[in-house]
Amino acid sequence: MAGAAGHNVGDAITYGGLTLRPTKGWHAKVGKGMCAVMWFWIFYRAKQDGDVLLGLRHPWEDGHGHGHPDP
């Protein structure tokens, strides 16, 4: 067994049978980059149709046609 619960094993921490090891540098950088992309996407979509999501406007109130001319 790697170590008792709650004790450090080298750089790893074992607690309750789960051993957590420190991340590699590039894992942390890629994770932060993906997090930034996620938040940029959320803010972009909120800008585009946040009022529909919040119930302030119905999506069919745009006045856009679907390529069909008005009679």
Results as ranks from 00 to 15, higher is better:
W26N: 03
G16C: 11
N8P: 12
G10A: 14
G31L: 03
K29P: 04
R21E: 13
L54P: 07
H7F: 13
K47L: 09
F43N: 05
F43I: 06
M38I: 02
Q48L: 00
G17Q: 01
L53N: 04
P71C: 07
L56W: 14
G3I: 02
A12M: 11
N8K: 11
R45I: 02
G6H: 01
P22Y: 01
G50I: 08
G50Q: 13
D70N: 01
W39A: 12
W26P: 03
K47I: 10
Y15A: 00
D11R: 10
P22I: 03
V52W: 04
H27K: 14
V9T: 14
A46C: 14
T23W: 09
G17P: 06
P69Q: 08
E61T: 00
V30C: 03
D62I: 07
N8M: 14
V37H: 09
A4F: 09
D49N: 08
G31H: 06
F43C: 06
P69L: 05
A2I: 11
G33V: 05
P69Y: 01
H66Q: 07
D62N: 08
G25S: 12
P71N: 10
N8W: 15
G31A: 10
D70V: 06
H58Q: 12
V30K: 07
V30R: 00
P71T: 01
D62A: 03
L18T: 08
Q48S: 03
P69M: 05
G67P: 06
F43T: 04
H27T: 13
P22E: 01
T14A: 06
H64A: 10
V37N: 08
T19G: 01
G6V: 00
D49P: 03
R45H: 10
T19R: 10
K29T: 02
H64G: 00
P59K: 01
H27C: 09
W41A: 13
G67T: 09
A5S: 15
H64S: 05
G25V: 11
H7G: 02
I42T: 12
G63I: 00
R45M: 09
G16R: 15
R57F: 02
R45G: 05
